[in-house]
Design a protein around this nucleic acid. Structure first.
Length: 249
DNA sequence: GGCTTTCACCATAACGGTGT
DNA sequence: ACACCGTTATGGTGAAAGCC
């Protein structure tokens, strides 16, 4: 499912009308000819398509982030996947006020980077990572990772943000990232390590234990990398649920 | 044009669920 | 235990579409 299959951002078009369009064979902007809906809605659809074509040609992810309701942000993914920034943070605890960010891992177009507190985890390094990202992808990042980073650093993240927790719930996948990975068959090197262990590993590293930091980093990287695999799975499944049954014969 | 049905959308409230 | 976004449920409102 790509952005060009979508009509849901148009005022007056909801789930039902979009489905009617798809069923009539209008599964792509190119197929729209003003039929199926009434005059008013047809005009609105046409003007949306005109603008959206330009925005898409410009690679304007932010525009589409605003156009799609939060529950439909996953539809943006296919178009912007190569500039999607998957990321995950580790901290010394759950409190944004008392605790600190220890590591941040980014996965972007197949490349993974980890920033470490006391070394290269700086506001400039963070800005550089987020600067040209089309969209953010996290798990529960709307309530944890993003606000935590914004509180800890002088940073404001207003990218389109796909928080996988909600689409996962929609698909009946719950119980946290690790559990969901297990359910959909994503492999992990160290399935025994949890977020709590990340806290412990950082403390051990500070006390000078050999290898603690390496373990923490590899755990953090795996979180970020696995987000990409999970996103592909989730996007496929939602496509199969929402679009495929209607649009394909 | 007048009428009816369908649909989108808004407001509100209660609840579920996950991060380290 | 905490914070809190998004979903769900509910009810109401008004616009659009299609029929005659």
């Amino acid at each position: 499912m790509r952005i060009e299959n979508s009509f849901i951002p148009v005022r007056g078009v909801g789930e039902t009308t979009e489905r009617r369009l798809w069923e009539a064979g209008v599964t792509h902007w190119d197929e729209f000819d003003g039929s199926v809906v009434g005059d008013t809605t047809a005009d609105r659809i046409q003007s949306f398509i005109d603008t959206a074509r330009d925005r898409l040609a410009d690679g304007d992810a932010r525009y589409f982030g605003e156009q799609f309701p939060s529950g439909e942000q996953w539809r943006i993914y296919e178009n912007f996947r190569s500039d999607a920034c998957f990321f995950d943070i580790e901290t010394t605890g759950l409190s944004q006020e008392r605790d600190e960010v220890t590591t941040v891992s980014f996965h972007r177009d197949g490349e993974t980077t980890t920033l470490v507190r006391g070394d290269d985890l700086t506001i400039d390094a963070l800005r550089a990572q987020f600067e040209d990202a089309a969209m953010l992808v996290t798990f529960n990042g709307k309530r944890f990772d993003v606000p935590f980073l914004e509180t800890s650093f002088d940073l404001s993240l207003d990218h389109p943000h796909l928080d996988l927790m909600y689409p996962c719930k929609q698909l009946g996948l719950t119980g946290g990232l690790k559990r969901i990975e297990g359910e959909v068959g994503v492999e992990r090197d160290r399935p025994d390590i949890t977020g709590e262990d990340a806290v412990r590993l950082w403390k051990e590293h500070q006390r000078g234990r050999d290898g603690a930091l390496e373990t923490l980093i590899s755990y953090n990287r795996e979180d970020a990398v696995n987000l990409r695999t999970l996103t592909d799975t989730v996007a496929d499944r939602l496509h199969d649920d929402v679009f495929a049954p209607v649009a394909e014969r």
